[in-house]
């Protein structure tokens, strides 16, 4: 089955150089990016990443004495292509700060305590409905070391592969109702309001199941649609 990749609407994607994000003007190309005709090379891609990397469970909040501290949440995420078709069997990597806003990473140093029961990373494979579920704690906000009052709102990082090289996606998911969302320089680098709203998960009205975690639903759309007969 052939995949077609169409150019994206620039307003739905972040600006490359972001005011107040000091690394962006040093690292993003000055020269215009070059349009190239898509070939098999870009319209194929690794489908068996799970055979190369280690898949790491869907419960990172821990159990019993090993429970992480924080608001328990349950994420239910669906991964679709541009036709709305589920993207099953694809590797999803997620990572996040702990409940206090601290990452377990050498780049994160001093502002908040690590949680001995929380590493904050899961690597999963989507099911045939393109879905994956994850039990975790809600990440905390944290200050960016620009020291000019930029705090990242609570967010979860995702890295996904999809069906072809050009469907590879690295994105971030935000939480609804967070006052810091309105001033976040990364979220607001996406010009289109509706495109920004799509980066925010939805809180499912609490019900009986699960009784002890808040459920958030989110949708991720990867690039690519199935070729029509004329295109294949």
């Amino acid at each position: 089955m052939k995949t077609v990749i169409d150019p994206r609407d620039e307003r739905t994607q972040p600006a490359r150089i972001v005011p107040g994000y000091p690394q962006t003007p040093l690292r993003n190309p000055r020269e215009p990016l070059i349009r190239r005709p898509p070939t098999l090379s870009e319209l194929s891609g690794p489908l068996e990443v799970a055979r190369r990397v280690r898949v790491l469970g869907g419960d990172i909040a821990g159990q019993g004495e090993k429970q992480a501290i924080g608001q328990l949440i349950h994420l239910r995420v669906r991964v679709l292509d541009e036709d709305g078709a589920p993207v099953g069997g694809t590797v999803v990597e997620m990572w996040q700060a702990n409940g206090a806003g601290r990452y377990i990473h050498p780049n994160d140093d001093d502002h908040a305590p690590p949680d001995p029961n929380f590493y904050g990373a899961a690597r999963l494979v989507t099911d045939e409905n393109g879905q994956f579920e994850l039990r975790t704690v809600k990440p905390g906000a944290y200050p960016v070391p620009t020291r000019d009052g930029w705090w990242r709102p609570p967010h979860v990082h995702f890295s996904l592969f999809g069906k072809v090289w050009l469907s590879r996606l690295v994105t971030q998911m935000y939480f609804p109702g967070e006052p810091l969302n309105a001033q976040d320089r990364i979220l607001n680098a996406v010009p289109d309001t509706v495109a920004r709203e799509r980066l925010v998960a939805q809180l499912v009205p609490p019900s009986a199941q699960p009784h002890n975690a808040l459920v958030y639903e989110h949708r991720i759309v990867l690039r690519g649609r199935t070729a029509t007969p004329e295109q294949s």
Partner: peptide
């Protein structure tokens, strides 16, 4: 459907995601 907006990978990509031998 419209593809999800990209975002930076940031400074905290977990070292364990760079599996031994993946290069």
């Amino acid at each position: 459907m419209i593809p999800t907006g990209e975002a930076t990978i940031g400074p905290f990509f977990p070292p364990r995601y760079v599996d031994a031998g993946a290069n």
